[in-house]
Amino acid sequence: MNIKIPINISVMNILNQLENNVSEDKSKQRLEALRHLVSLTDRLPHPTSGQTYQRWQTFAQIAGFDLSLAKLFESHCDALSILHELGSFEDGAKEIWAVWAAEGPTPLQVKNDLCNGLKYWCSGAQFVQKALISYKNKEGQAQLGVVELNQPSIHVDLTQWKAIGMQATETGRVYFENTPIRLIGEPNSYLDRAGFWHGAAGVAACWYGAAARLMSFLQQNCQESPNSFKKMYLGELSQKLAVTKQYFHYIADRIDDKPTHSHEREIRILRAQTEECCLRVIELVGKALGARPFCENHIFANLMADLPVFIRQSHAAFDYEQIAELTLRELSVWEL
């Protein structure tokens, strides 16, 4: 009998192996961990499956160990969910996928199923095997296409990524020259589908997982050497994380109950709430623990460097003008 181990147990085994590996070549070990995670993708629930919260738990779990790994895996899973939602089924168990949808100042050109130009902010550019790439067609509509990345017509430039945070994603610019591209879905279907916003909530789950792990360092420190100031910070952050976690539960239930709805407003609020919570965690945990973990704990130091960059990279800035137009009653996260 083929008995499958629950995905969260399998994920934790992969993460523990990555954390305990003493090899200096962390990039190689991270890529190997990503390949192992990709092999579990068929056991990860899609959004709207009735197990949306469990999907987000997996992203958060990975982010608590390594945000770069979480970003790469979340992008792979998002690509497969997009293909599933748009009715284009692919075998994703053996290849690493990505979604490259950031728009730069020079638009990508696609004509006669050939792609030319430059795509910005492509995470995993050196090792991703297939990518879903967004571009604008001649009518200005958003279109999505699949590109096989092992082609000589593709050139990767990693020299433009200057941030210390999220360096391990190997994010770069990718140049295409008459590269074959296969169109997916109808024009604007990528943006119009309900899953666009469901995926945006999955990214926020990565932020949350990193913040929760950072807070755990403070919690452990309070147990080992308590003082009133650290306890005060711990209390505030515990409250913020608990409220945010409860809102993730709430949104996941809404998505599973009404899978054809985008829940855009609620997910915008969720992302704003999670971002504010993360920034407060960064501030207070850093203040409470001082310099030592920044200098001596590689997980703590990496999460502190990566999390602000990941949030900004995810285009997480909240649309305050839009939210100001909503009434106070509409903003109630508890209203069913």
Score class of each variant (00 low, 15 high):
A212L: 15
Y53T: 06
F65D: 01
L144G: 00
S262Q: 02
S189F: 05
Q167P: 04
A242C: 12
K258H: 13
L108R: 09
E275P: 01
V243R: 03
L40K: 12
L183Y: 04
R292Q: 12
C206Q: 01
F310C: 02
Q322H: 11
Q313Y: 00
V156S: 06
Q129H: 11
Y247G: 02
Q223M: 07
Q51S: 03
P259K: 06
L331S: 13
R30K: 13
N302F: 07
G165I: 05
E264Q: 10
D319F: 05
E186P: 06
I82H: 11
A33W: 03
S314T: 08
E24L: 02
L279M: 13
M1N: 05
M12P: 00
A63Y: 01
L336A: 12
L149E: 00
R35C: 08
K231C: 08
T106H: 11
H46I: 05
A163L: 07
K71W: 10
L279K: 14
C277R: 01
E330F: 09
W121I: 13
Q151C: 07
A79E: 07
V99L: 11
A242T: 15
I5F: 15
Y233D: 03
N227A: 12
L191Y: 14
L328K: 14
E74C: 07
D253N: 04
L328Q: 07
L191M: 13
V156Q: 03
F318K: 04
W161T: 01
V110M: 08
N297E: 10
E283D: 07
F65K: 08
I181D: 04
S153K: 08
E95H: 05
